[in-house]
Design a protein around this nucleic acid. Structure first.
Length: 843
RNA sequence: GCCGGAGUGGCGGAAUGGUUUACGCGACCGACUCAAAAUCGGUUGUCCGAAAGGGCAUGUGGGUUCGACUCCCACCUCCGGCACCA
């Protein structure tokens, strides 16, 4: 026994803080006891907490720890708050890397994936999260993808899956088509490998996401971050306007239908533009113009998507020789083709109003087409030149026949109505959103359950023949052709209608199909059905979903679409999968770049865990800053968090054999008030202020400030100990509360110390500490005193001191008097309990 | 270009109308040690001053207010998303 003279009182030397001595032991115990298994028959109210499952790339990196710890904290707090919490985990295990490994190294994708999953599962387990591993799912298991195929068949039967020839984005490196959402950036590159995509006309499978465009814009009833809602809203891109038919001058041809958001500018339409791909182009082109038009169309087809869509590129086009008629003033309008009009949006044709549309303006200038202003500011000032006039508020129509003088906002409806009345127009809405292209020309995915019969065309594989299994032992040569296409045994099928020979579909599904319903599978992992309806009703929807914001218009949009479609098929009774969504920030490399193997800036948590323990890594990650912000990785501060945990370790060691649980039977706040045990009272105040603060911080995902508050409490406990308070009920209450509040962040340390103090196993099954506002209240407050807004003095008063008394005390203050310098205060502002400000007359 | 988000000590950050810089890192000083590490105690926005004390400071410039990191207007920089969508 040693005696220390400064800082600490005499006590036995504490056992060294060594997380490795207990962390793994508790994890084994928790697993053995099934502590984190969510039971379907638990009568308590359910909470389904979910974090996005990872792709099994091989190793867990620091970002996985960061992403998982946040929801784990909330899940653990909810559980201690009395809820039946499910927090499952699984693997999104189909996808290209496995297949590329097969090509590069000759390993079977299934073997490669299984090995990665095994390693990552073990790494996940070192985090000490309360994952319910009994519900684990692996999307490449035949049991799982049988359900994915079965769901595809439901979508097909509901008319929500269809096959169509379409110009699609093709990644030449990965040899696969991509969904629109998987093509990124100004140079239109592949989301996975970064190679610029090219356009190809291919027959592909689509899911009809556009059917739900309007409903997907409705976020009422779900609590999602504003930026994600905005991104989805912009992606869907709803535009209200009109479709207008422009009859052709030549007889016997259908009119050209355009979409516009500005029908009020129709009197300013001086030419029309069709997309080069527009079906009417070849019929309308005059012989004189045919050669020029044909060569333009061919050139446009050869353009890459990048060149075609670049906004900076100079606009080009060709007059096709034909004319249309403006339905409202019968004016003759020349028809052009130009590739700045896109075939896939609206009707693929526009009325060009160069005075009021910047693109049309540029085009008109280049080809010297007339520019006519038909909308002017209400003040009546006409533009001095024939320049482009950006849209502004309070405009009126001019030079627009009977509509001249009408407010532009009103004219939009009035002109459209007139067109409706004469049968040449309709109110219309256009969306940017396209249907979801789900076919992938690769092996490692769920085969699309379709066969093609010469006589009966595309037919679903009968349900009792599912799953369509991926063949083993296939040849993964880098030929650019899916190995399935070269597998005669796989290709051979039977037509379910006539029993004759049929060819099997060789495309597999986008892995985002797998992840569009995995949250349903967790509710009934081993069910023969995709999910057990009763279990889904019990657990769904997900109460709290967390993950990266990069999925805003991918997974998060697809999953909402899926659930809405399944609801309309009568398979679910809700329309939103995730009630509350929170996005974690991204942990960047030390070089402030995204972590990636190729950059060599991936931080590996294993060394840190070995040195400091899981709890310290968890705490540190949660402490470095706001969870939704992320930031560059810099492990220097971990020592501070480790020291904090070591301090908790030494503080919470039992002084004597385990005893009563103090606090519960201790004096109430009211009894303590004025009891004379002022120091104990101060400690209890710290304890209860911390309960309130940490609870609200966890709930708001403010883990960094929650940990700061726990550090403050531990500092207060150190002072109390040094003041001789250990042994008191207030002291024991502070320690137990500290452990309970710390348990979600540092589950191993809290459990170990809880056990050492002789408390009931497990700390993770204890009730969340109760906050007593009377105990948190203060008897005296320190009021800052300002003169003209600058801090000059402080005043200690009781909260019930009358305002007149405070004012008298403030004005009596020497320091205030010194700063007044003889001036008479103009007024004294008091914010009760907050501050006093003495205002002097202005010079 | 359009739509979001963010700019506070040497560093990560705290405070969303009321004491700017909580909590932590780092640095410096001290205790313990033969010494070092670890641990513990202290100091730490900046300028002037021996001190008492005072001036200045939350990207920039204005405004509202007794009082602004916080609200309003204009601008600068950085990060993310979208990008010829009629």
């Amino acid at each position: 026994m040693t005696t220390e003279t400064t800082g600490t009182t005499t006590r036995p030397r504490a056992e060294r803080f060594d997380p490795a001595s207990y962390e793994a032991r508790w994890r084994e115990r928790w697993a053995r006891d099934g502590l984190y298994q969510a039971r379907d028959d638990d009568p308590r109210e359910k909470r389904y907490v979910l974090t996005m499952y990872p792709y099994p790339s091989g190793d867990l990196h620091i970002g996985h720890w960061y992403a998982a710890t946040g929801p784990d904290i909330v899940a653990r707090m909810r559980r201690m708050g009395g809820y039946n919490v499910m927090f499952p985990m699984g693997f999104d295990s189909f996808g290209l890397p496995a297949e590329n490994a097969a090509i590069d190294r000759g390993v079977d994708p299934a073997t490669w994936t299984a090995g990665n999953i095994e390693r990552m599962r073990a790494q996940f387990q070192t985090m000490g999260c309360m994952f319910d591993w009994s519900r684990e799912i692996v999307t490449s298991d035949p049991e799982y993808y049988a359900c994915t195929q079965w769901l595809f068949e439901r979508f097909y039967r509901a008319g929500l899956a269809y096959r169509a020839m379409a110009p699609v984005d093709w990644c030449p490196k990965d040899q696969v088509v991509l969904a629109r959402e998987q093509v990124e950036g100004t140079d239109r590159h592949c989301w996975r490998c970064g190679t610029p995509v090219v356009k190809r006309d291919l027959e592909q499978w689509f899911l009809r996401t556009t059917q739900y465009a309007d409903e997907l814009l409705d976020f009422s009833g779900i609590d999602w971050p504003e930026p994600i809602r905005l991104m989805q809203t912009n992606w869907i891109g709803r535009s209200e306007g009109a479709e207008i038919d422009f009859p052709l001058e030549a007889n016997g041809v259908d009119p050209i239908r355009v979409f516009t958001t500005r029908p009020d500018t129709i009197f300013g339409a001086t030419f029309m533009v069709l997309a080069p791909e527009h079906p009417l182009v070849s019929t309308l082109t005059t012989d004189a113009q045919r050669e020029a038009v044909d060569s333009y169309v061919v050139a446009a087809r050869r353009e890459t998507e990048v060149e075609r869509l670049s906004a900076e590129r100079e606009k080009t086009g060709v007059f096709i020789g034909a004319y249309a008629v403006n339905p409202l003033n019968n004016e003759r309008i020349p028809i052009w083709i130009a590739d700045y009009v896109l075939p896939g949006y609206g009707t693929g044709a526009i009325m060009a109003v160069p005075a009021h549309d910047e693109r049309d303006f540029v085009f008109a200038q280049k080809y010297e087409l007339p520019i006519r202003h038909v909308v002017v500011p209400a003040s009546g000032e006409l533009p001095t030149d024939q320049a482009f006039a950006a849209h502004a508020a309070d405009e009126v129509l001019t030079d627009s026949g009977e509509f001249t003088g009408m407010a532009a906002s009103e004219a939009i409806g009035a002109i459209t109505q007139q067109l409706v009345d004469i049968g040449l127009g309709s109110f219309a809405i256009s969306y940017r959103l396209r249907d979801w292209l789900v076919s992938r020309q690769r092996y490692w995915g769920a085969p699309i359950p379709i066969v093609y019969c010469e006589e009966h065309g595309a037919q679903l594989v009968p349900e009792d023949q599912l799953p369509v299994l991926l063949p083993a032992d296939v040849d993964f040569a880098a030929t650019g052709v899916s190995p399935l296409q070269a597998d005669a045994e796989f290709l051979a099928a039977e037509c379910p209608v006539c029993g004759g020979p049929a060819r099997r579909e060789t495309d597999t599904m986008d892995t985002f199909v797998d992840s569009s319903w995995y949250f349903l599978r967790y509710t009934s992992t081993h069910s023969a059905l995709a999910w057990d309806p009763e279990k889904a009703r019990l657990w769904m929807p997900v109460d709290l979903y967390t993950g990266g914001a990069e999925h805003a218009v991918l997974h998060l949009l697809y999953a909402r679409f899926f659930v809405k479609a399944l609801r309309d098929m009568g398979m679910l009774d809700f329309g939103e999968p995730f009630l509350t969504l929170r996005n974690q920030g991204q942990i960047l490399g030390a070089d402030h770049q995204r972590m990636s193997k190729s950059r060599g800036n991936v931080a590996n948590p294993d060394e840190l865990v070995a040195r400091y323990g899981s709890d310290a890594v968890r705490c540190f990650l949660m402490f470095i800053g706001p969870w939704d912000q992320g930031g560059p990785w810099n492990p220097t501060g971990i020592d501070g968090v480790y020291r904090f945990l070591a301090r908790v370790w030494s503080l919470a060691q039992p002084k004597s054999p385990a005893g009563e649980i103090p606090g519960s039977g201790g004096p109430s706040g009211a009894e303590l008030l004025g009891s004379g045990t002022e120091f104990q009272r101060a400690l209890r105040r710290s304890t209860h202020v911390t309960i309130a603060g940490v609870s609200t911080d966890y709930e708001a995902f403010h883990f960094n400030t929650a940990i700061a508050k726990l550090m403050e409490l531990s500092n207060a406990i150190v002072r109390a100990r040094d003041g001789g308070l250990d042994g008191t009920d207030a002291y024991a209450e502070a320690i137990d509360t500290l452990l309970l509040l710390l348990a979600p962040v540092a589950p191993h340390l809290a459990e170990e110390l809880w056990a050492r103090r002789g408390r009931e196993y497990s700390i993770h099954q204890q009730a969340w500490p109760r906050y007593d506002s009377a105990l948190a209240a203060t008897e005296t407050i320190e009021l800052p005193v300002q003169v003209d807004g600058k801090l000059r003095d402080r005043l200690v008063v009781t909260p019930d001191t009358p305002a007149e008394e405070i004012e008298r005390m403030v004005l009596a203050s020497e320091r205030v008097q010194a700063h007044l310098g003889g001036r008479v205060p103009k007024r004294v502002i008091q914010i009760p309990g907050k501050l006093v400000n003495v205002v002097t007359p202005r010079d």
